[in-house]
Simulated assay, not measured.
Amino acid sequence: MSALFFVLTSLPAFAAQTEAPLPETFANHKVVLQISDSDPFKQTLVLNVAGNLQRYYGASDVDIEIVAFGPGVRLMLKGNANSQRMQSMMTAGIRFSACANTLANFAKKLGNTPELVEGVDKVPAGAGRILQLNAAGWQILKP
């Protein structure tokens, strides 16, 4: 019985350790943009929305993280058509996170893990990251 109690009480602590850390932010607006689509139009759209939000509110008043999972991770792969634009957006303070689960599945199919655009963070689970940010008061947008 005590071993079962230990396992059950340890699970929440273990789960919390596997989540990516929350960003420190003093912005009034916190937005997480979801991209889970491989369509280049939608991938460009999510970048446009992020840029438009930053221009509208000002870089110091909005914190933006773009989270990709499933086919949307293609946006964050090194050498994609938006790589330079993403680097510029990172310089302006926009964060990018790619799902490690998706990358592991890509690796199974490809035989190697594809490289990410420099500066993209890996998070354990893209959908989990979105829920984590939402629980911390971030608004979710899926353009």
Results as ranks from 00 to 15, higher is better:
L4I: 15
F5S: 14
F5A: 14
V7A: 14
L8F: 14
L8K: 07
S10F: 05
P12Q: 10
A16L: 11
Q17M: 11
Q17Y: 09
T18M: 14
E19R: 12
E19W: 09
E19C: 05
P21L: 13
L22H: 09
P23D: 11
P23F: 02
T25H: 04
T25L: 08
T25Q: 07
F26P: 06
F26Q: 12
F26E: 15
F26M: 13
F26D: 09
N28C: 08
N28I: 03
K30W: 03
V31W: 02
V31C: 05
V32I: 10
Q34H: 14
I35L: 05
I35G: 00
D39N: 15
P40H: 14
T44H: 10
T44P: 03
L45E: 10
V46W: 00
L47C: 05
L47A: 02
V49N: 09
A50V: 08
A50Q: 01
G51V: 06
G51K: 06
N52C: 08
L53M: 12
Q54D: 06
Q54E: 14
R55T: 15
R55V: 15
Y56W: 07
Y57T: 05
G58H: 09
G58A: 08
A59D: 12
D61T: 05
D61V: 08
V62W: 01
D63G: 10
E65F: 07
I66F: 00
V67R: 01
V67A: 04
A68F: 01
F69M: 04
G70S: 14
G72A: 06
G72H: 02
V73K: 00
R74P: 01
L75E: 00
L77Y: 08
K78T: 13
G79L: 08
N80Y: 10
N80F: 06
Q84F: 05
M86C: 06
Q87R: 09
S88W: 03
S88G: 15
M89A: 13
T91D: 07
A92R: 06
A92N: 13
G93T: 07
I94H: 02
R95S: 09
R95K: 15
R95P: 03
F96C: 09
C99A: 12
C99W: 01
A100E: 10
T102R: 00
N105H: 13
F106D: 03
A107Y: 05
K109V: 02
L110I: 10
G111W: 12
T113F: 04
E115M: 07
L116E: 00
L116D: 01
V117Y: 04
G119Q: 08
G119V: 13
